[in-house]
Amino acid sequence: MESRPLYELADVVYRYGDHFELAVPNLSIPAGSSIGVTGPNGGGKTTLLKLLSFIEKPYKGTIFFDGRRIREQDHHVTREITILFQEPYLLKRTVFDNVAYGLKVRNERGNITAKVRGALNLVGLPYTVFAKRQWFELSGGEAQRVALASRLILNPRVLILDEPTASVDQESALLINEAVRSFREKYGTTLIVASHDRIWLSTVTDSIMKVRKGRLESFDPENLIPGPWIHTDNGLHTKALSDGRHIKALSPPGKQTTGYLRPADIVVATNCPSDLSTQNILEGIITQMTFENNEKAVFLSASVAELSLSCKLTQAAVEKLRLFPGKKVWLLFKASSFRWH
């Protein structure tokens, strides 16, 4: 993964009438990263995504893309970014023409049928069944998948999705999630996605930010630990990790329920502690550390078998323990710290 910033926003302000203002004093998005955006409706998520896709211009401030200030005529740059909205709009044409439109405006007409076929397959729409259908012959979920295919075919550098599964049926939502995940895995596209589906977000994004009342807030990335939870004799439930270790939890409501663990509930130690009442003491390696200016806190990610657990520490604790990425640590949390939804 590349790590130089693809986007850099400096003192960006966007105003919508007198009622709404989105302010982003400072935001940097690395190339090849995958960012989730969450927050309540009307908080400014869509506005932020429109700014990042250069559909809207900020009222104040600058958005640098690839280190450059983007001007209106920089079509070759802005064409590397595409956005899919919650409510799709299909052109009044066939499915084929909808999916092929972006390539045609770029004058990339070579191999167009094969490309359309590939894009439709990716979103689970068989070419022979759907290519000739008219725009009005599709269900809402199919229309959204056609809209997604028309973006994926462009092989964009940045794919921005604004709640792509919020208004579609469950089957389409699964197919969209899967298509986005496999597309990103294949091409390493920078992905910016707003969604209320936190479990999906946690599987496709590296980090999540929260937009509320027009302000960016750090999002406590709650650790999600999926089941199965197996009942044991001592009244606890355990989840087996791939390396044979176990995580212990108190009374999950179902075998497959996902447990939520707050980063602040995990204690970090640099030596293996003993004689503690805590049920979970897991060895891990620090993979990432980020400083959240708003909260004056450090978020630390540590890999434990196949899991990546996020912990929240004070700056003083980080300095005292001399933590750095690559260092071995022990993560401690109680079996009763899990919350279940």
């Binding site: 595409t82 909205f85 770029r106 462009l154």
Partner: peptide, 13 residues
């Protein structure tokens, strides 16, 4: 009103 944004998103200029 979504047409204009969709066209820009698909690269029309």
């Amino acid at each position: 009103r979504r047409l204009g944004m969709t066209l820009i998103a698909l690269g029309a200029r």
